[in-house]
Amino acid sequence: MALYRKIIVVIFSLVVLVCLYAGVFHWMTADTAQAMKAERPELEWLRLEYNLDEEQFSEIRAKHEAHDIVCRDLCRRLVEARKQLDRAINEEGTMSPVVSAALAQWTEQRQRCREATLEHMYDVSSVMSPEAAKRYRERIFRQLIIPGRMPHVGDDGEFHEEIIDHAAPAENQR
C-alpha cells in the first residue's frame, strides 16, 4: 500500500473515531438536551425523570401553575417577614419582645411556606405511579429538607429546627 494511501486511512480512522465519540455523547445526553430546549426545562425534567404520560403531565402542569401563584405570594410575605426581623434586630439593642415577635412571625411564615410546598408535593405525587411518586417525594425531601430539618415554632413559642424522622430520607438523617 502506498504511503499516502496509508496516511489517508489513518486520517479517515481518526475522523470515524471523532464521529463515534460525538454520536455516543449525543445519544447519552439526548433527553437532557431535549429538556433544556423546552419552554419550562424543570417541568420537562419532571416529565422525563418520572415517566409521565401526557395526561399525567398536563394535570401536573396545571397544578404547578396554580401553585406558582400561591408560591409567589408566600415568597413575598416571607421577604416582608425577614425584612421586619432584620429591622427589629438592628433597631433593638437587646432580645426584646419586638425581636421575639418578629422572629416568631418569620418562623411561622417560613413554616407556612414549607407546608404549602409539601402539600403541593403530595398533590403532584398523587398523580404519579406509586413507584414514581415514592422516588419524587424522596427527591423533593432531599432538595428541600437537608438533612431532614424543619423549622417551626414550638408550644413554648420558641424557634426550633428539628429532625423530621418520618419525612426525611434515611440517608439524610444524621
Partner: peptide, 19 residues
C-alpha cells in the same frame, strides 16, 4: 444537568428556596 434541573424545580415550588 439533571441535578441542576431538580434544583430549579425545587426552587420553583418552594417559596423558602425562592426567597
Amino acid at each position: 444537568t439533571w441535578s441542576k434541573l431538580a434544583s430549579t424545580y425545587a426552587s420553583a415550588i418552594d417559596p423558602v428556596m425562592q426567597m
